[in-house]
Design a protein around this nucleic acid. Structure first.
Lengths: 228, 228
DNA sequence: CTGTATCCGTGTTGATACTG
DNA sequence: CAGTATCAACACGGATACAG
């Protein structure tokens, strides 16, 4: 039995408001929706990957969100080519263009006095936050390639003209390579935890150009908290 | 009796995620929250004003959202000076800085094939959408002041260096003054409905510089829809 | 006019278990 | 690993009543 729930996603809650922001909330305002999109920002992901990156989401909810995103034209279901014909979920082109939403939300919300940076942090979150938080005036004309090894995957990022970009790719030809889990890397870049402490604890390993390593965290200043 | 519901807003749903966007959703991801903020973007509003601008919200829900926004430091409850000592709700400075969130959401969502521009449209929505949609290259070096009379209130907007800004103010010294309800004005600017039709129907009245009137809608092009 | 207090029907969420 | 089934808790919207 698969289609007893005829009136589930069809009669989706609407606002009856022509405002674009209101329509955006109808599309991606459901709980978890935007975070599911976040996890697909760097390429297709499997059901289990998404579930692992979103601690607390239930399988039910993830299924419903993916269905909703697909019927809205934001995501797409693919199947990896045989022999590994696993189903994966990817953002459409339009879905990918929602990235500024994550940036603007994050830049605004980290100023909240209640923001707790010690919680779980996915690889996608870290890379998107670096893209959001880089200060172009501090980067100046720096050109650099930065590799990341996190949770069994590798990402290759670049800093060009003050813009930080990243993709899932091998870490070859990178000026520096960071190896550790996302919260640890964040503790170094954002939290000001000394690199020596993390390296001797075996939580973080950085190889490559030490002069770049020395200034790297300064490229990503956090905005001041709002009020008290 | 006022505090029987101890565990209502206190145990607010969290994501347990350090990502800034996730925290933003904890702050303003509740249904209606962002739309309530939208209505306060141009200054303090009364409970009844908010309710009237948000068709479909219940008094209960509006009360809860306002409480949440206040405890998060996003909004503030004030009282107009006597004799009209009516309570009003206003955004804090930090709350006001959430405006780019509305812009980015709207710019992305109007490209949805399912967006319906014929629904209700508040004055705040219209002015924010003009601010979002203005094309600086089309505005060029145009300098103009535009007045709006909508639903018994007046707004004064300016176009300077391709930036559209508006505030609740008298429409004095404006180059043109638009008088009509927000959906009608939107039909002219965005919908391409001829001004003559709207004026003869008595739905819209524009006074002032006719040459500015002629080119005005062209300053606000809508982005192309995503895919089909 | 500005809310608060209930009741109620319904949809959504999350936990657990389970199937292919 | 990729989901589905079931169930309990709760949030939401609508209606209504009512207090300051």
């Amino acid at each position: 039995m698969k289609s007893d729930n005829i009136t589930k996603n069809v009669a989706h809650r609407r606002y009856g408001d022509a405002c674009g922001a209101a329509h955006a909330l109808e599309l991606i305002g459901d709980r978890w929706a935007l975070l599911v999109m976040r996890e697909m920002m760097f390429g297709p992901r499997r059901f289990g990957d998404l579930r692992a990156s979103l601690p607390g989401i239930s399988a039910n909810t993830l299924t419903q969100r993916l269905e909703g995103l697909i019927t809205s034209g934001i995501a797409r279901r693919e199947r990896l080519p045989p022999p590994a014909s696993t189903p994966v979920y990817a953002l459409t082109e339009w879905g990918l263009e929602s990235e500024p939403i994550l940036g603007v939300l994050g830049r605004w919300a980290v100023r909240s006095p209640q923001h707790d940076p010690t919680l779980a942090f996915s690889a996608a979150s870290l890379l998107l936050s670096l893209r959001t938080m880089i200060a172009p005036d501090r980067a100046g004309s720096l050109y650099a390639k930065i590799g990341f090894r996190m949770a069994g995957e590798t990402y290759c990022a670049s800093i060009v003209d003050g813009v930080f970009a990243a993709e899932r790719a091998p870490v070859e030809d990178c000026d520096i390579v960071l190896e550790g889990d996302p919260p640890t890397i964040a503790a170094w870049i954002y939290g000001g935890v000394p690199l020596d402490d993390l390296e001797t604890a075996g939580a973080l390993r950085i190889t490559g150009d030490r002069s770049l390593v020395a200034i790297f965290p300064e490229l990503f200043p956090l905005p001041a908290k709002a009020q008290s």
